[in-house]
Amino acid sequence: MSAKNALNEIKRSLDGLIGEKIVLRANGGRRKTIERTGILEETYPSVFVVKLDNQGNSFKRVSYSYADILTETVELMVCKDDGNNIRITYVEE
């Protein structure tokens, strides 16, 4: 499967999750991992936007590319009402 198809598949899976509460784990550099929670607000052709919960963050919204998920620079976990987390990753077949 080509990278372009993989990115389209990631976008399609996120399109159905708009409005869901998610947990982001992102590489912060120098062996730091940043974890934030928020709502998946919008998906665009190249990026997706997350509105962050107010926890003293200096940013209200962050955006990441679908390639960040493909390269595992960013991990997404969807928080469902029943307390279960569903992890979004891409596995090439």
Rank of each mutant, 00 (worst) to 15 (best):
S2V: 10
S2L: 09
S2N: 15
S2E: 13
A3S: 11
N5A: 13
A6S: 15
A6W: 03
L7A: 05
N8S: 12
N8V: 07
E9F: 11
E9K: 12
K11A: 08
K11L: 12
R12Y: 12
S13D: 12
L14R: 04
D15F: 07
D15A: 06
D15V: 10
G16E: 12
L17P: 02
L17I: 09
I18P: 00
I18Q: 06
G19M: 11
G19E: 09
E20Q: 13
E20K: 15
K21W: 03
K21P: 00
K21I: 09
I22S: 04
I22Y: 02
V23N: 07
V23P: 00
R25N: 02
A26H: 06
N27H: 09
G28N: 06
G28I: 06
R31A: 12
K32H: 14
T33K: 11
T33Q: 11
R36G: 00
T37A: 15
G38N: 05
G38K: 01
G38S: 08
I39C: 06
I39L: 06
L40G: 01
L40F: 03
E41S: 09
E42G: 00
E42P: 00
T43W: 03
Y44L: 14
P45R: 14
S46H: 09
S46G: 08
S46P: 00
S46M: 10
F48Q: 03
F48E: 01
V50E: 00
V50Q: 00
L52G: 00
L52T: 01
L52Q: 01
D53P: 00
N54R: 15
N54P: 11
Q55R: 15
G56I: 11
G56E: 07
N57A: 08
S58T: 10
S58V: 07
S58M: 10
F59E: 10
F59S: 07
K60T: 04
R61F: 07
V62Y: 01
V62C: 03
V62G: 02
S63R: 14
S63H: 14
Y64Q: 07
Y64S: 04
S65P: 04
S65F: 05
Y66G: 03
Y66I: 07
A67D: 12
A67N: 13
I69S: 04
L70I: 05
L70S: 04
L70C: 05
T71N: 15
E72L: 08
E72M: 12
T73N: 11
V74G: 01
E75D: 08
E75I: 01
E75V: 02
L76H: 02
M77R: 11
V78W: 04
C79R: 12
C79A: 13
K80A: 07
G83H: 06
G83S: 09
G83I: 10
G83L: 06
N84I: 14
N85D: 10
N85L: 15
I86K: 14
I86T: 11
R87D: 08
I88H: 09
I88R: 07
T89Q: 06
Y90H: 13
Y90P: 01
Y90M: 06
V91Y: 05
E92I: 13
E92P: 02
E93R: 10
